[in-house]
Write a protein that binds this DNA or RNA. Sequence first.
DNA 1: TACTTATAGTTAAGCGCTTAACGGTGCAAT
DNA 2: ATTGCACCGTTAAGCGCTTAACTATAAGTA
Lengths: 359, 359
Amino acid sequence: MATLKEVALRAQVSTATVSKVLSNTPYVSEETRARVLRAVAELGYVPNLAARALSKGRTYIIGVVFPYNYDHLFADPLITTILEGIETVCTEQGYNVLIVTPRAPVIESAQYQRLAQSGYLDGLITIETLPDTPASTIPEQLGYPWVALGYRSALGNLNTIQSDDFAGAKEIAAYLIGLGHRHMGIITVEETDLAAAARRMSGYRSAFENAALNFDQVPCERGSFSVESGYQAADKLLARTPHPTAILCLNDRMAIGAIQRVWAAGLQVPQDISVVGFDDIPSAAYFAPALTTVRQHAEEMGERAAQMLFEIIGQRASDNRRGTTQTPSGFKPIVFPSELVIRSSAAPPPGRSLESLRR
Amino acid sequence: MATLKEVALRAQVSTATVSKVLSNTPYVSEETRARVLRAVAELGYVPNLAARALSKGRTYIIGVVFPYNYDHLFADPLITTILEGIETVCTEQGYNVLIVTPRAPVIESAQYQRLAQSGYLDGLITIETLPDTPASTIPEQLGYPWVALGYRSALGNLNTIQSDDFAGAKEIAAYLIGLGHRHMGIITVEETDLAAAARRMSGYRSAFENAALNFDQVPCERGSFSVESGYQAADKLLARTPHPTAILCLNDRMAIGAIQRVWAAGLQVPQDISVVGFDDIPSAAYFAPALTTVRQHAEEMGERAAQMLFEIIGQRASDNRRGTTQTPSGFKPIVFPSELVIRSSAAPPPGRSLESLRR
DNA sequence: TACTTATAGTTAAGCGCTTAACGGTGCAAT
DNA sequence: ATTGCACCGTTAAGCGCTTAACTATAAGTA
């Protein structure tokens, strides 16, 4: 609670001198430096960050904006893993992380809007799971240092970090096709709920078309990310005759739900039906059967996002210093590969299952 | 980027008036109010929070301090669930959450120390998994609004939110005993790594003693929270002859690891060996066999912690207003019950397994 | 000797906001 | 006519820090 002034008084110097000592500015004698430092120690002085922020125009806080329409936000391991990556880099750089979870579509979220423009944040990382939300727009308008994890077609995806959803989806679909599956089902989500959904669906489609399979008549149900919704969606898929021999799920949690439903039907995974997911959440490996899925490099993506943000912040700062007008350009999108993780929830289709089921 | 001053200029009033309008202070005519509001809208004015924080002495940011020695912090669903609870309440109250993850024992973490004392935070919630870390001490010394999730024997556990680890552990141990198990093994962690560890162990002990079983000769291995470490610990437990018919694990992840090891030995859970966990992480329900474990009310605990914090903040504020000296007292600890969740990873011991193993 | 220049420290303005204290109005009550 | 007071608005003093601009001294240079 001691202030700079009190330190100055005690050390018998001006506040400017104390400030200089604290910021390691040169031209302070060893003797006064020592005196100041002693006063600081004696008073247990800690600079007031709000004051510093006001006068320096920097807060050393960066905001991480979560997607708003997720069911249980932090329950998604992918998101928390990304957060962890971000957090690591920010801490290294001496920045703090403020988490922003808009509870309304971003455009309506007063909380978010204010924060973004309040000068409280030195930068913003948005985790954008939705297609082109206005969240994408605002920071850019402000010339605000900002990076998005996700897609932003509007601005040519500048300053974004992405996962190669298309390639990952294509690969896992091709894998199932390679195993011999011809009748598959898909559990997806509303494309308005997840920007990546469309990419993954395109990936699936591409694999199907490569194998000369008609993608448009593949049965497809929609869930809402959760295990429960995966169960429900699988329920509908299994009601078909013949039922699919493999189910492609847009995320792991729905895959787990789908597997529960398959079990409930008295069938085995993968012997009777193969089920694959997407994301490779931590428990995917320990689930039985261990999930065949697609891994995204979430932690690295988070780290890279933070690094990119700091590059932007640094660049802005030097621009300002030399009075250059801001380069309105940005970084090209960084696309992280996603990789097929083969475990044991997928296998070749049962030999004559189709025939036998048709009886 | 517009400032109060600019708004005032445009609305042709003083900055004080603008400020009053913005804070809904009475005694402003409808007409000027409208004029000010229009100017605000036209300029897209958003108050600068750093300035507001400085002049009001409040930042509307509360810090959540994570335990420092966790392997993969955010990977622990318990922690993220708590965070979610905290976040919910804070958002409701118009507060933001800053996450603080000391990367060193708290006492050495300059980052943490400064933050706590920098006036940047209106309050602190520490998630304390360790026994009486200095983290517990500092905020209290400062009379800083602060709540801990965990145990703090030093201060009579004032202002803490706890889970009834003892009762939960006792209950699950008693459950296994009730099923008929007599030879059990325990997978715990270092007590210096988790304050609750001692409580849970006491709970186990109590159940054993109630059943007149000698707790001290129960084989006990130590892991480090992770699935992998559970596997390793189970490995040692299974090396014994006779091996235990049930394994009590201090958390679910280690239980999952232990189950993997049991499978690797060609044994079935729960037919051959029962394995139970603690925490009831989300995937516990979907794991096969679904884990019998102990649920903690993590989200509610987080919410309650935040509520308690706001009560303290409010109380401080009114104290200051009427100049009362701070009541150094605090709230009594709130203990959340933990409840046994019976699923399918535990069953009675195999009929004659004891005899047959002893051959 | 006079003029730089490096060093050491101070002054004071200012970051953008809040708020106590202080005028002025009108108008009802004395 | 005087007082009281509810109402509307302004002035100005901070909040605690940073930093440009300045003063002052000592040492180096032509």
